[in-house]
Nucleic acid binder design. Structure first.
Length: 726
DNA sequence: GGTTCATGCACCCCA
DNA sequence: GGGGTGCATGAACCG
């Protein structure tokens, strides 16, 4: 029998309710993680309890206490946990304390689990949908005092105040997540996986070789999911595939251990701490049952891995890397769960809030390397570890993007959404080459499933209280940030994190975020060339473009929030790329060659040469153009194109030398395009295409010189709308 | 020398 | 034959 017991506690019910209520203002799925959400620790209490300790840090740190005993041979019974009493605070839930007798022998654990399942807040993996009892689980009960989630005392874990965090500030109920998961299947699977052999001792775990040997030894006994054997594919791929193929929680856990044995030690796992209520709520939100727990397990493992790696990365940069606490402190500051931008709290996939109508949005294939919108944690970084600031501040406003008005239905193909994780916390591109991504897509869940909706809603959580805390943290951080930066007057404009999102001028180029990772900031391009002879207002707004017409490096200064006429200050647009239009771009071909680097960086990664449909809203006219983003094979490379641009070009009267700018709306994820006319003041703008190839070349050369030397020297930028500036 | 990208042009489809 | 599609070529750029 494979059952996952997840005890609910009475703690943080309000936040749980936030989850259940699908509070769209919150990034994090798991309330505790949301508030604090900083770390997951697997902490070795040295105890002999077989349970997941879920602690709630005083400062809303989410802690899952993993009792090392889970990896030991003999797993004592859960009823021994002193923490059980804590859940007894539940006066309304008479759930009995059930003992789970677990041991290295899966059979015993299985039987005990089975026997105890009935009275627990149990998410059973046997397929039975543990439809939450309202009274018991409080899915509809936000009363913190109801004790609705307190019925599952059996998984309670003692408060570990010595660790600096209590076992659930709300109710003090804790469960050992790792043990829970290990408990369920790892111990139920006919001993095919002896966790005790992996992390039998701390010393062993500290010995990578021994650990590896142990794992390798175990591998012989393990039913390996085929896809999991491919480690090269990355963990995300593993998770994706496992979701589809793996029916065994134990296998999931085992494979995860195998795949991460070199990077995640038992010590690391012991530091993982997840709030019991969080787990319970998350599992419930996932639909309950085996599948839900499987997903949750995967999510948690993924997060553990991610967090660990991030912590490790951070550790390498600190001189105190011998201090685990310190390193975790570091990771705390980089908590992938944390959204430093209170405005960016909502990571709601498009199926929930996208501007696309659900009927038209078809999730693309699972990304190989994707931004992970963790349904369980609100935000879970992909292996690339986009910083917290890369959250997509989704849809705090109701969907406003109408379906594309083009004639004919939108293709039932990938409907890409803007990427939102390309920037590091300093607003620099992270350098990875391309996404295969829909930022809203959950790599763990097969697209199109109803479960997705639940997962997506998990992104939201927490209460106003939690938001207040985040805001306070953000303010503190900002204050610190300001003190440590040599600010100029523009700094204020750059650090309105959590308060406002910079608006975008069509000629402004954005630098994604500040170091706090919050709000997208837009920075003007200040040409390296001598100052252009332009009105002062334009000098800081003209883009610097390379020969391809794409954006060149831009100094992070002189933020000029543009609130000119016609602009929509409420839009949170993020600059993606721009392209100076060539003759071939504005000709009859109806296609625009996009700069490769920017396209790969900021637009969805293309799996097939046919590309994807991109609905582009014309910023000037609000008309939505159904374009196609694709690529051509070109030698060993690719040439990226935006097709179906003919009407757009004509409508905007774009000609050679003009340029387009593509943004993404960070709120609702749509793409926006803007055609910008460039009129030469000292020379005549080409009114007609060159009549010959030689003329074309000359023209191109001239254009390139303009772009490279002084891109704004001789031009006046005018928008196709009323924003012409001369 | 490798990469990017503008565009020439071959091929195919269709009226 | 015209238009669309997509590959190939070569110039420009970059390291």
């Amino acid at each position: 029998m494979k059952s996952l017991h997840v005890a609910a506690n009475g703690g943080d019910l309000a936040e749980d309710c936030g989850i259940l209520a699908g509070d769209a203002d919150d990034t994090v799925l798991m309330d505790g993680m949301d508030e604090v959400g900083r770390e997951i620790w697997l902490d070795d209490h040295g105890g002999d309890h077989n349970h997941v300790h879920v602690h709630s840090h005083e400062d809303d740190d989410l802690i899952v206490h993993h009792d090392p005993s889970i990896f030991y041979g003999d797993l004592p019974t859960l009823p021994d946990f002193p923490c059980m009493s804590s859940s007894s605070s539940s006066s309304t839930s008479p759930a009995p304390v059930n003992a789970i007798v677990s041991s290295a022998s899966s059979s015993s654990a299985a039987s005990s689990s089975t026997s105890s399942a009935a009275s627990w807040a149990i998410l059973r993996s046997d397929g039975e949908d543990p439809t939450p009892n309202q009274n018991q689980y409080g899915s509809g009960n936000c009363d913190d005092s109801s004790g609705a989630l307190q019925s599952t005392a059996s998984m309670e874990i003692p408060l570990d105040n010595s660790q600096g965090f209590g076992c659930g500030e709300g109710g003090g109920d804790c469960i050992d997540m790792m043990e829970t998961f290990g408990y369920m299947d790892l111990l139920d699977s006919n001993e095919f996986f002896d966790t005790s052999a992996i992390f039998s001792q701390d010393d062993d775990t500290q010995n990578p070789n021994l650990m590896d040997q142990t794992l390798e030894r175990q591998q012989d006994q393990v039913i390996v999911v085929p896809m999991l054997e491919n480690n090269s594919g990355g963990d995300m791929q593993m998770m994706n595939s496992s979701l589809e193929q793996d029916d065994d929680l134990a296998t999931v856990f085992l494979e995860w251990l195998k795949n991460n044995k070199e990077t995640v030690s038992a010590e690391d796992l012991r530091k993982v701490k997840i709030k019991k209520a969080t787990i319970e709520s998350a599992a419930r939100r996932l639909g309950g049952g085996k599948e839900a727990m499987k997903q949750l397990l995967k999510l948690i493992l993924e997060w553990v891995q991610t967090n660990h790696l991030q912590r490790r990365r951070t550790t390498t940069t600190t001189t105190n890397n011998n201090n685990n606490n310190f390193s975790y402190q570091q990771s705390f500051q980089q908590d992938p769960f944390q959204n430093p931008n209170p405005n960016n709290n909502n990571l709601i996939p498009p199926s929930d809030q996208t501007c696309f109508s659900p009927s038209t949005w078809v999730p693309p294939p699972p990304p190989q390397q994707a931004f992970v919108s963790d349904p369980g944690f609100g935000y879970m970084p992909a292996p690339n570890y986009p910083p917290p600031g890369e959250f997509l501040p989704l849809l705090e406003s109701p969907p406003s993007w109408p379906p594309p008005p083009q004639s004919g239905p939108m293709p039932h193909q990938q409907f890409a959404m803007p990427p939102n994780t390309q920037y590091n916390q300093f607003g620099e591109p992270t350098g990875f080459t391309g996404y295969n991504m829909n930022p809203y897509q959950y790599p763990y869940v097969p697209a199109g499933q109803v479960r997705d909706q639940r997962l997506l809603r998990l992104c939201s959580s927490a209460t106003k209280e939690a938001r207040k805390k985040r805001m306070a943290r953000q303010r503190r951080f900002l204050s610190h940030h300001h003190r440590h930066n040599n600010n100029n007057n523009n700094q204020q404009n750059q650090t309105q994190i959590g308060e406002t999102c910079a608006t975008v001028a069509p000629q402004l180029n954005p630098v994604a975020t500040t170091a706090t990772g919050g709000t997208w900031m837009y920075w003007p391009n200040v040409p390296a060339a001598p100052p252009p002879q332009l009105p002062p207002a334009m000098e800081t707004q003209l883009p610097t473009m390379d020969r391809a017409g794409s954006v060149a490096a831009m100094p992070r200064q002189q933020v000029v929030p543009d609130r000119r006429q016609g602009w929509k200050p409420e839009k949170n647009l993020r600059f993606l790329l721009q392209k100076v239009l060539k003759q071939s771009d504005v000709g009859n071909l109806g296609r625009i060659v996009l700069p490769k680097k920017e396209a790969e960086t900021h637009l969805p990664e293309l799996e097939a040469r046919d590309g994807i449909s991109l609905a582009m809203e014309d910023i000037g006219t609000s008309r939505v153009w159904n374009m196609r983003y694709r690529f051509w094979p070109n030698n060993k490379s690719r040439m990226y194109l935006l097709e179906n641009t003919g009407d757009f070009v004509k409508t905007n009267g774009l000609q050679e030398g003009d340029f387009i700018v593509i943004y993404s709306d960070v709120k609702c994820g749509k793409y926006l395009i803007r055609g910008v006319k460039v009129r030469q003041t000292t020379g005549q703008k080409p009114e007609a295409p060159p009549s010959s190839a030689a003329a074309t070349k000359r023209q191109n050369k001239s254009q390139r010189n303009i772009n490279n030397n002084s891109p704004s020297a001789n031009v006046v930028v005018a928008s196709p709308t009323s924003e012409t500036v001369k």
